[in-house]
């Protein structure tokens, strides 16, 4: 052959083929959001392992695939969890599955949260809605290595008290030394004793210093935009702020072109980005 770019390749499984895994447990977190726990499959003969913030392409028989963040503890990779918001065809198909059913998995894909960069620093986690799912593995990891970090501040907003995910975990995390958890809802009722208001309001109740702090933010893009403004107002530089972005994904491995944001492929360059690498792209509409 000519001097092409193709080299003799070692034989690996086709990354476009899913591996099938048994569902062990289904937990309905809210009336439209559920978590599927599966026995993690061996991929390419290796045990499945992942970094906090990575995602899988989860396949429902005949309906298709959806990019779903892994929401379980990375130090326990034998069972992996996907917390899924039932919104479209694929996620609706997934929502009908029960223990013993199978789903297809491709992954883990993408870049995760900068846990190691946060060593020796405070961590400020700001999240909204289903955005807490990709952050849960990061929180598990931070707490597991508690002594290596300073304060851990978790600010979480949901639409209503009934939409709050991981209530048990939130409660448990709040009891860990030097971990502050503050929760708010956009819409409350008289039975809700907690905060009502958007997640950015929570900055009023907690001391967040920009110095030696890493911020990890995940939620709807508008919520992240307001959060970033709030962090910047508190002196955060863009290289201290990390966001997890969402785009349409078909392949998860940078080949289908769907998830582009300017020169970035969200699936392989992200989904977690340092804000300084993407802020100029997020400022423009419809990039």
């Amino acid at each position: 052959m000519t001097e092409t770019l193709i080299e003799a390749e070692e034989k690996v499984a086709d990354p476009l083929l899913p591996t099938f895994a048994f569902i062990k447990r289904v937990i309905w977190e809210t009336d439209d959001t559920f978590t599927l726990f599966v026995d993690s499959p061996a991929i390419n003969g290796r045990l499945f392992s992942f970094r906090p913030g990575q995602f899988n392409m989860v396949y429902a028989f005949g309906s298709g695939e959806s990019a779903i963040s892994i929401s379980s503890d990375p130090s326990r990779p034998s069972v992996i969890a996907h917390t899924i918001h039932k919104v479209g065809t694929v996620t609706t198909s997934l929502s009908s599955l029960r223990r013993g059913d199978m789903i297809g998995i491709r992954g883990p894909f993408g870049a995760g949260w900068p846990i190691d960069r946060a060593v020796g620093k405070d961590v400020c986690i700001v999240t909204g809605g289903i955005g807490i799912a990709p952050l849960r593995p990061a929180i598990y990891s931070l707490i597991k290595r508690r002594a290596e970090f300073g304060r851990i501040i978790i600010l979480y907003g949901a639409r209503s008290p009934l939409d709050l995910l991981y209530r048990v975990e939130l409660e448990a995390w709040s009891k860990v030394p030097n971990v502050e958890v503050i929760v708010t809802v956009d819409r409350g009722d008289s039975s809700w004793k907690g905060h009502i208001g958007v997640v950015t309001n929570l900055f009023s109740y907690v001391k967040v210093e920009s110095q030696d702090t890493i911020a990890m933010v995940c939620g709807p893009e508008i919520m992240m935009k307001f959060t970033v403004e709030e962090l910047q107002r508190r002196g955060f530089e863009n290289d201290q702020i990390f966001l997890s972005l969402e785009r349409n994904m078909k392949c998860g491995i940078g080949l289908c072109g769907h998830c582009q944001l300017g020169p970035k492929f969200i699936c392989k360059d992200g989904p977690v980005f340092q804000l300084s690498d993407v802020s100029h792209l997020l400022e423009k509409k419809e990039v």
Partner: peptide, 19 residues
């Protein structure tokens, strides 16, 4: 204004298409 945007509100009411 942010509250008005109902940023988490995709699930209720309007149904979105295939993801």
């Amino acid at each position: 204004r942010l509250q008005l945007l109902d940023v988490y509100g995709t699930s209720r009411g309007e149904k979105s298409e295939k993801f």
